[in-house]
Simulated assay, not measured.
Amino acid sequence: MSSNSEIPIDFSNPAVRDYMSLVRLQVLTPLSLLINIATALVCSFVLHPSLGDVTRSHPASISPWAPAIAAYIFAVYLGQVGYCILLVFARKPETKSTIIKGVGLALVIANWVMAGWAIAWVFEAFLTSTVLLGILTLLLIYSNVVLIVYHVPTWHRPLDLAFIHAPVRLFLILPLSVLFPYSLFITLGHGWDPAHPDQSDRNQWEGFAYLLVINIFGVLIIALRQDWVWFLGATWVCVSIWLNGRDPMPIYIIAIIFTVLHPITLIVTIFAKHFASRRQEGRIRLLSDEESAHQGQTLGGHEVQGDWS
């Protein structure tokens, strides 16, 4: 027998394809995350101007406070580290299916795109930055829709919730809520000179409209799904906007309003769902008691008839 004989592998077998996909993700996902983190660190602490410097020197109607956004990105990185660990130690078939078919290569590509955006932002290539953020947003929208529709999050698999659904959703909220519109406004020339704060009210209503629409959308998601991840991410973004202190007054007010409205929506919908379920249980119990009483009366009637016959 030849020592160079090939091992037969049936790549048409779905199980084999899934295994190879998982192995590929186990290699590419940590690598892409490492490149994303390294690029962010270099662009923040080595290059000049840094990510924060460019943000501070180009205010617009929606301008986040750089330290708050940095903390948000750090939280996304932590979630992805947990995801990478889950990639290696996942044993449940449902978890593996969620990783392979729900997230897949979208997160890998998103990390690469995020790294490219950091470089474009530091070099003030705002058109490239906007295009990359648009691609990033579309990638993450696709991944989140697939996760929600085909891999429904459940508390029966808490690790899936914490390290698959939560990081991917948090990752989406950042460009969708603030980074993409901010970069777009700068690209369109709708920013203002930080040396002239009296110009801050220019083009303020487009920022107000975007912030209003995206946060109403967020409130609907929180209300319909009791989505604590969206509540956390959207509230964090709103806080980062009003902490900046340089945004126009309408932007400042709407950011504060939704900072309060997001948690209120979550709390109210959770209690409403709880009371609705309790009421439904009470109705079912009442109907069950009535049916039992009716059956008892019926049986009692038969027994009386039997005694008189």
Rank of each mutant, 00 (worst) to 15 (best):
Y83D: 01
I164G: 03
S3E: 12
H156E: 15
L179N: 02
L232R: 02
T130G: 02
A272W: 13
T39F: 11
L172S: 04
V23W: 00
A118E: 13
V46E: 04
V213L: 07
V304M: 11
D201K: 05
A234F: 08
W112E: 09
L22C: 10
V131E: 10
L286A: 15
T29L: 15
P181I: 02
L34R: 03
S5C: 03
L211P: 01
S200T: 12
A71E: 08
A272F: 13
A66M: 09
A15E: 15
A40E: 06
V113F: 09
L261H: 03
L31E: 05
V23P: 03
G191Q: 01
V42R: 00
S200L: 11
R246Y: 14
V46G: 02
S32M: 04
E290G: 00
L172A: 01
I254A: 04
L220A: 13
F45Q: 08
A38E: 09
V81T: 12
L28W: 15
P167F: 05
W155N: 13
A40V: 09
V27M: 11
I7L: 10
L51T: 09
A118F: 15
G218W: 02
L161E: 11
I119T: 12
I284L: 14
Y72S: 00
D18I: 00
G207K: 10
F180E: 08
L286C: 03
W112A: 11
A293M: 12
G306D: 13
I99L: 15
I85A: 13
G282D: 14
W155C: 02
S3P: 07
F185L: 11
L188C: 10
L212G: 04
S143T: 07
D247N: 15
D18C: 00
A90H: 05
H58S: 06
P158S: 08
T29Y: 11
N36T: 12
V152Y: 09
W112I: 14
A115K: 07
V145N: 00
V108H: 03
V113M: 08
S177D: 12
G296M: 09
R278S: 08
L147Y: 09
L266V: 01
V239Q: 09
I173L: 10
M1F: 12
V178G: 01
D160E: 15
R285M: 11
Q295L: 13
W117H: 07
E124V: 03
S5F: 03
N215C: 05
W112T: 07
A223K: 00
C238P: 01
I73L: 09
I69T: 01
A38G: 14
H294D: 14
F275D: 11
E281Y: 02
I214L: 00
L47T: 12
A40I: 09
I221E: 08
L243A: 14
A90I: 05
T128N: 09
P248K: 06
Q295M: 10
W230Y: 14
I148C: 01
A234S: 15
T29I: 06
N144H: 06
